[in-house]
Amino acid sequence: MGKLSAFTDSKLVLLAIGLLGITILAALFAPWIAPQDPYDLAQLYILDARLPPLTRNADGTLFLLGTDDQGRDVFSAVLYGLRISLGVAFVATAIAVVLGTSIGLLSAYAGGRTDAVLMRIVDMQLSFPAVLIALMLVALLGTGIEKVTIAIVAVQWARYARTVRGAAMVEREREYVEAAQCLAYSPSRVMFRHILPNCMAPLSILATVEVASAISIEATLSFLGVGLPITQPSLGLLIANGYPFMLSGNYWLSIYPGLVLIAVIIAINIVGDRLREVLNPRSER
């Protein structure tokens, strides 16, 4: 309980957690919260196009964040975009965590040649910037939601592998591991049931921050036009689509998706930072 209270004694962290809770709920329940289905063409009226925020159309419908060039409610589009952005980021992070953790554990447990080869691959990959690796994969595989997910996983797995390996190398020398081995438990049982639970602190800190980085990578790729297709408009794609209109003064098309994107990324980083302080006994600021 000491850790939990240490976690929540900062107002900023509480604010960040609250904001994340709201955005996750908004993303989950977007179809019920959104005033209109932004991608059902039957619900759009071209006469509503490019209304500024907080205006009503002839029927009296309120457009909280304005409308785009096709009369689409920006608020609804942001909710649906959030759904796609968070969905891609969470799925990609989950896959990368499982993959990276397994490789890291294997590397630490097997040691020797296996460890050397795996860590050489990790080193090689980490020496290239994330944008370049993501771009390379998108260039090779093509664009699309599963391609972007693969690109994010490919960028991130190595970081988990290295972190988990580091933590597991320390744990492997402990007596409880020796005891488990003496009980003739299978290597996979020792790795996943005994060593892994003791590596959770660094892993959970990294995974939190990496969700933000996954959101950022997806948004960047989509903004550049090499990420998600136009039929799956994430926040990054909404910003890109609104960008040309911004030059003619219709700022709300890009600004609001962008503000939501930024708020989510900052909130995740605040929570991750706090996690690091609480879970790492050596950290002092």
Partner: peptide, 17 residues
């Protein structure tokens, strides 16, 4: 910290505005 974690394209857009 913000400089590292925020997407560059967004900061660039704000600069243009």
């Amino acid at each position: 910290i913000l400089g590292i974690s925020l997407p560059t394209f967004w900061i660039a857009l704000i600069m243009i505005i």
